[in-house]
Design a binder for these strands. Structure first.
Lengths: 225, 225
DNA sequence: ATTTCTTGGTGATTTACATCATCATTATTC
DNA sequence: GAATAATGATGATGTAAATCACCAAGAAAT
């Protein structure tokens, strides 16, 4: 019976699918595992698959000039990667790689677009997801433009603390370089700002383990830019 | 009979609607005109309407710290404003105002979400639009982060020349301040860069009238950042 | 176990751009 | 048509953060 078990999970957005739709979609889905640094997809490849993260953490990024990367977003369990490329282009317009060892469902784009056309509730849910992506990237654009480093680093800390870990005490699975890419700066500048926070007793810092001591100041820095 | 004529145009994405759907949607639609500086919607207001631009040009922007604005995108005839806010939030997450005297259809968000659920082809078309928004804003984010001013100004000139006017010779309806907001800089820096281009005979500049003399160099500057 | 690579960290230097100040010119308003 | 405001333009100055150069510690490879 296990071989017959459908890959599509009974959770999140897939709750909007009927059993037969799940079965159909499952036929166009592959389960894959990735170790750190493995690519889920690459810029300019045909965007044939939408990726649904089951476990782990991946980054969606774009290569700038030289070796500089900009990380557009992270995606964890229950989130998608490659959605906008799949619907808005025939090629992936950015790259994605695993930060932690991860697993994901690779769902054929065509199968999803077929369901979109027939299942209004599922479609509406996807609209919400995609729209939030627009809003989030727009916010990031504005923050990059108006905030300087302390504000952006504060944003980053808030993001991990509130959105990702739900705790003031967490261990980031990213290198300093990767953290820098998330807020559009260099690893040196990120390290310096983080250490300033530490010296000012706003955070506690021990390698990848971060503890926010004074969240009020972090929020203030984030707000005032 | 004119009073019975439907507001919804027979063009673009609305071609995917049946006559009765158009009629329905028309009942939830208002035609409005705006003069320069009029607001189409404001950040934090309930996102009850999706705006479809009939004529003119509007900007979608966000206020940063102080009086600094960042322009996220422009929208002209046949384009939407407020889509992502309508689907992804209950409030507008950015503001929109008219750059040129403009006219637009204000379509009730609810009416659109209803159609999305029942009309797969229309829904798929909207997915394309929304996905392109994600891709465009993402590209802008990367460009802001990796390119310096000459590259970003070159991007701006290419955008007007290729995407908006389809000509190397055009008159921008925006002030220098507004141009600066589009590429995340100040009016002074934009003016200086534009004048450097002029002195280098890459462009011809006479007030708001711009002529690209050497598009190859503009492209190169845009590519190399 | 020793080399090699990656990552974290620090100081010195440079620079692109913002900021500030000011003025000319063109639009708007009354 | 004078008064007022908005815009375009330039120069001088300041500064945040990139860049460059380097080293130490840990991880991975041999």
């Amino acid at each position: 019976m296990t071989s017959d078990r459908n890959l599509i999970p009974d959770s999140g957005i897939f709750n909007y699918l009927s059993d037969s739709e799940k079965k159909d979609l499952g036929r166009h889905t592959t389960f894959m595992t990735f170790v750190r640094h493995d690519m889920l997809f690459m810029q300019n490849m045909p965007s044939d698959y939408i990726v649904y993260i089951i476990d782990g953490l991946v980054k969606i990024y774009k290569g700038g000039r030289g070796d500089r990367l900009i990380c557009i977003s992270l995606a964890g369990p229950g989130q998608f990667a490659g959605l906008s490329s799949a619907f808005g282009s025939d090629k992936y317009r950015n790259s994605s790689s695993a930060i932690e060892n991860s697993s994901a469902l690779m769902i054929r784009t065509r199968a999803v677009t077929d369901i979109i056309k027939s299942n209004g509730a599922f479609s509406a849910a996807l609209f919400r997801i995609l729209s939030k992506e627009v809003l989030d990237v727009s916010d990031k654009l504005v923050n990059f433009s108006v905030k300087q480093l302390p504000g952006r680093v504060a944003d980053l800390l808030k993001y991990f603390s509130e959105d990702i870990f739900g705790s003031k005490d967490f261990t980031v699975p990213l290198t300093r370089q990767e953290l820098a890419e998330l807020i559009g700066t260099t690893k040196e500048s990120l390290i310096r700002t983080l250490n300033e926070f530490k010296n000012d007793k706003i955070i506690d810092l021990d390698g990848k383990h971060i503890k926010i001591l004074v969240p009020e100041i972090i929020s203030m820095l984030s707000d005032l830019g």
